[in-house]
Design a protein around this nucleic acid. Structure first.
Length: 569
RNA sequence: CGGGCUGUAGCGCAGCUUGGUAGCGCGCUUGCUUUGGGAGCAAGAAGUCGCCGGUUCGAAUCCGGCCAGCCCGACCA
């Protein structure tokens, strides 16, 4: 490609509303332009990178036996109603009506549709199957952000496995784990596999691949000493037990005027340390008011509450709902003697005695509470949010927490979808059994952004050779010098013939502009061709990542660079 | 959905308080000079001032409504 005829609209100034490095650099480098909130156009070099990312993913999924197909983005709403996910995904589902009065949705994922295809499987002899597509997804995210990292229309590689039993599923899951590991390595990103919540997918088990980045949206708990890593939505930790006094025979009510928070009660004369308080929250789970109890110094992890309760809709209760339920305002709530609503308690409250909690009377608390004796706990659950420094649940060493981008997510689905949609086969005994499914997703544009997040410097993007829009740029220093232009043209032509993706910067710009643009858009190798080098029969090779420069003889430069590119693809 | 902020030329911004010719930098066009790290001089082109309504002799500016975008939170395969 000749830069003089290419559409690569680089910007000198950073776009005003881009915060994340990948957002800023992809816009400034002429890779993408925003059309509306969460919707981006990919310009020519952006499209080239996307194509290379997709090619890598395709190779790796093909290598584990995937068969590529292509399903529609437009779905009948009825299929989604059959699995209950018009409700479960209501907040992100684009819905529309067609002119015949039919109801449709734009697919946010494709379990329903792949499973519908899988109803044509009839015998255990036909499985295992592994099907995938690379296709557009639509999710009406409430808050798109950070350029390509969270958008409303995007490309996803989604694969689905169908097996006769869980042993088959486990095998397909492990193969995907390995394929994803290879994909991220080839993309030039570090992706940490972590235990994750399955969220609205349901299913038994899931692993997220998290790319460490401040632009990420998830907190990942990991242990530097062993391999333990988990999304904070699911992470557990080992923390020391609190030693309690037995306390009095029954709770004692005492006035606490003005005390509204855990911290207030710590300060209050006659109050208690935070780890000796019971924090009482009220949530509405699928319409049912539920009390949620934690140790005073612990934070609720809402995803754990949702997962443990199986609720679809989880929200904090409104102040008026709380008062109607318990007769007091937040700040004076407690579960002692409460018998109406369900009471979910965090495991860290088990066996605790002599605790302090609200009295369900404004400005009053109870002390001397024995959890087992005084509170009718409906169910014990792990509900607390792990924080850095707590002990690893596997080895006890202090845990660390980092921000990460969810670059891929693989699920063991089980039979949720096959049962709902009737995807069954006859087994060897002639029994009809639902197929055991897995689903495996990786976002194409999000991974483009993740690559940039992990591969940039103050000058711009530093693409790995594997996904660079062009592998080499030939920079013509002096366009009005015939010998320079001719030499650069020959190198450009011969690199192309050698199979290298090469761009020649033949614009009539000053050298500084060309160098800066080449570094901004992040081409891995630059060959600088100018009169100064040609005088000694050389051209200069610059390596974008290291800044290293070497003079190469013009006679061997093409084969040398072609070899360098091939080695690093 | 709650809070904060912003819409003025392709990009980045000023002007709005106090109503009266729509500006600056970069980029773009033409010419000359320049050319190994974002050149200089000169002459130009380009804007429904987000949209609708109101006040006024007159609105980018004041008032009302709406729309869009960004950030924080909530939310989120």
């Amino acid at each position: 490609m000749r830069w003089s005829h290419a559409f690569i609209p680089t910007l000198r100034d950073d776009p005003a509303d881009a915060e994340a490095a990948s957002h800023r650099l992809l816009v400034r480098g002429g890779y993408v332009r925003q059309l509306m909130s969460g919707v981006y156009s990919l310009l020519p070099i952006g499209h080239r990178v996307r194509s290379k990312v997709m090619a890598i993913i395709r190779e790796e999924i093909d290598a584990i036996g995937g068969q590529e197909l292509l399903l529609p983005a437009l779905h009948p709403r009825e299929i989604w109603e059959r699995t209950g996910r018009t409700e479960a995904m209501a907040d992100i589902l684009f819905t529309l009506n067609d002119l015949r009065g039919g109801a449709a949705v734009l697919g946010p994922t494709h379990e329903e549709i792949f499973t519908t295809i899988a109803t044509e499987l009839t015998s255990y002899k036909q499985v295992p199957q592994l099907w995938y597509q690379i296709q557009t997804k639509f999710r009406d995210e409430p808050r798109p952000k950070a350029g390509l990292l969270r958008v409303r229309e995007f490309t996803m590689k989604d694969s689905y496995s169908f097996d006769i039993d869980t042993a088959g599923l486990d095998l397909q899951f492990d193969r995907h784990f390995a394929a994803y590991t290879r994909i991220f390595a080839r993309l030039g990103v570090t992706a940490v596999p972590v235990e994750a919540s399955s969220g609205s997918m349901g299913g038994s088990d899931s692993v997220e691949f998290m790319v460490p980045s401040p632009a990420g949206e998830d907190d990942v708990v990991h242990c530097p000493a062993c391999d333990y890593a988990a999304n904070v939505e699911r992470a557990t930790s080992a923390i020391p037990a609190v030693e309690d006094d037995p306390g009095p025979d029954q709770p004692e009510r005492f006035p606490t005027p003005g005390v509204r928070t855990i911290a207030d009660l710590v300060e209050f004369e006659g109050g208690a340390a935070a780890d000796r308080q019971i924090k009482t929250l009220v949530y509405v789970l699928d319409g049912e008011a539920t009390m949620v109890l934690l140790r005073g110094d612990h934070e609720l992890q809402e995803q754990k509450l949702q997962d443990a309760s199986g609720a679809v809709e989880v929200r904090p209760a409104h102040p008026e709902e709380i008062r109607e339920l318990l007769g007091a305002g937040a700040g004076s709530l407690g579960a002692v003697g409460v018998s109406g609503p369900r009471i979910f308690a965090d495991l860290q409250l088990a066996e605790r005695t002599n605790m302090v909690t609200g009295a369900n009377l404004d400005d009053h608390h109870l002390r001397g509470v024995d959890v087992a004796r005084d509170i009718a706990v409906t169910e014990w659950m792990d509900l607390r949010t792990v924080v850095a420094g707590e002990g690893c649940p596997e080895c006890g060493e202090p845990l660390e927490v980092f921000r990460g981008i969810e670059a891929g997510h693989i699920f063991k689905l089980g039979t949720k979808f096959s049962e709902a949609l009737g995807a069954t086969v006859l087994d060897a005994d002639g029994e009809s059994v639902p197929l055991v499914m897995g689903s495996y997703g990786i976002g194409v544009e999000r991974n483009m952004a993740a690559v940039v997040e992990m591969n940039h410097d103050e000058r711009g993007i530093v693409w790995p050779v594997s996904v660079a829009p062009y592998e080499v740029v030939v920079t013509v220093v002096k366009m009005n010098d015939d010998d320079t232009v001719a030499a650069a043209d020959r190198i450009y032509e011969r690199l192309g013939e050698a199979g290298v993706d090469v761009l020649i910067d033949d614009r009539t710009e000053r050298p500084g502009v060309k160098f800066n643009d080449a570094e901004l858009i992040g081409i891995p190798y630059r060959l600088t061709v100018g009169p100064r080098g040609l005088a000694t029969g050389n051209v200069e090779l610059s390596v974008r990542r290291t800044g290293e420069r070497t003079e190469l003889p013009i006679g061997t430069v093409v084969e040398e660079v072609a070899r360098l590119v091939a080695e690093n693809r």
